[in-house]
Design a binder for these strands. Structure first.
Lengths: 215, 215
DNA sequence: CGACGAATTTGAACAGTGTTAGAAAAATCG
DNA sequence: CGATTTTTCTAACACTGTTCAAATTCGTCG
């Protein structure tokens, strides 16, 4: 067990160094953006030689993936907190969707990272299905409250899932537009468009629920 | 004027060579995808040395931009054709939105190109505002029928523009999801979600129009 | 403490990218 | 044909992610 403790300590040190690199990566992301976050830039920020990172991570994208993963945890926490004190499913649904939207509106770097990695299923050097599934699970966890709220409003699991996917897609598109700023938005903001869409989705759910109650 | 003719001919030859390179680029896009469409690959496909392309184009992204531009023309034509024989504004709106969506569902490479370039307002080496504005205009032209149809249904220019932006964002998000295939869609397809959204937008427009008529 | 073995980091290189400068070839014109 | 301009190539630069063998540091044991 002495060996275990020693091994545990060295493992802890190793984990600490990984964290050091990940923090450096996060810092470079924030300051230089995704494009400027080269392996060498991250290594320099962490006080390492580029090659050294390969002892702690499999690839550059593996670092990206791990940064995104902690971002997804943070996202999920934000959503959960936003609905913590709400009881009405419709209110919860609305709050969850808007919290999701708001998180990425305030953290555009995380949005970049997400778009980059989630689009990468077909990139040359993939992440491997393991990490891929981890990321999917992280995102699914953050979106779960939306699905749950929809089901609490009477939607079937399939309907609820579809609503979640649709809301996610709509939010992603609006965020992309608002982020790149290529299409001007007159008067209203992306957030208002998202709010309107969410309300309409809720209305649709309610209508369907009422129709089912009558039959 | 003999000089003009000569100059005109040499200009025509030059344009022809540009077209050759652009066709090569399109071919590489289709076969290898966006990631595989390196400058050297395009040059090889066109029978050129990499450096030779810089005599005809300013940069790699300038080639991308020009390919995308012809794609946008094609998109606009597709949308226009889809609504050519339709008179009812609501029907035209629906058809235009779905044609837009369908175009990118059937031409995912063009979607890649669009996402890549339209996200690039903040990339290191931009395209220059001139080309940027050209692309914006090309996209705006393809989306114009949506705006027009909305206005024909009684929407103000601002409302119509907002509806167009929202529809574009929603379509972009759904296409992105359907394209990368990272989130499974149970039962319904992205196209069905887009259709439902379009119908609801039309319903909203009609309600608003009726309310205005009453007041 | 010293030495052995394992864990960790480095230096140098490779293949690839977009891009540029100057020389060479090709086409055009007087 | 000779001179000029247009077009293309060769070679290189700076950068990217990545790999490998050598060197260094570290923990453990005699």
């Amino acid at each position: 067990m002495a060996e275990q403790r020693r091994q545990g300590r060295s493992q802890a040190v190793k984990e600490l160094k990984r964290g050091l690199i990940l923090n450096a990566a996060r810092k470079v992301f924030e300051t230089e953006g995704l494009d400027g976050a080269s392996l060498r830039a991250i290594a320099a920020e962490a006080g390492y030689t580029p090659a050294a990172l390969y002892f702690h991570f499999d690839s550059k994208e593996a670092i990206y993936a791990e940064v995104l993963q902690t971002s997804l945890v943070s996202l999920s926490a934000t959503v959960d907190q936003a609905i913590a004190n709400l009881v009405d499913p419709a209110v919860r649904l609305r709050a969850a969707a808007m919290a999701f939207f708001g998180f990425y509106a305030e953290n555009p770097r995380d949005l970049d990272l997400g778009f980059y990695l989630f689009r990468g299923g077909m990139r040359p050097r993939g992440l491997g299905l393991e990490r891929d599934e981890q990321l999917n699970a992280g995102l699914a966890a953050a979106l779960k409250p939306i699905t749950n709220a929809a089901m609490a409003m009477g939607a079937t699991p399939e309907e609820a899932d579809l609503l979640m996917v649709d809301a996610f897609a709509h939010a992603a598109g609006l965020l992309l537009l608002a982020h790149t700023g290529r299409i001007r938005m007159f008067g209203a903001s992306a957030s208002e468009l998202m709010a309107r869409y969410t309300d309409e989705s809720i209305e649709r759910l309610k209508r369907k629920s009422d129709a089912n109650d009558q039959s």
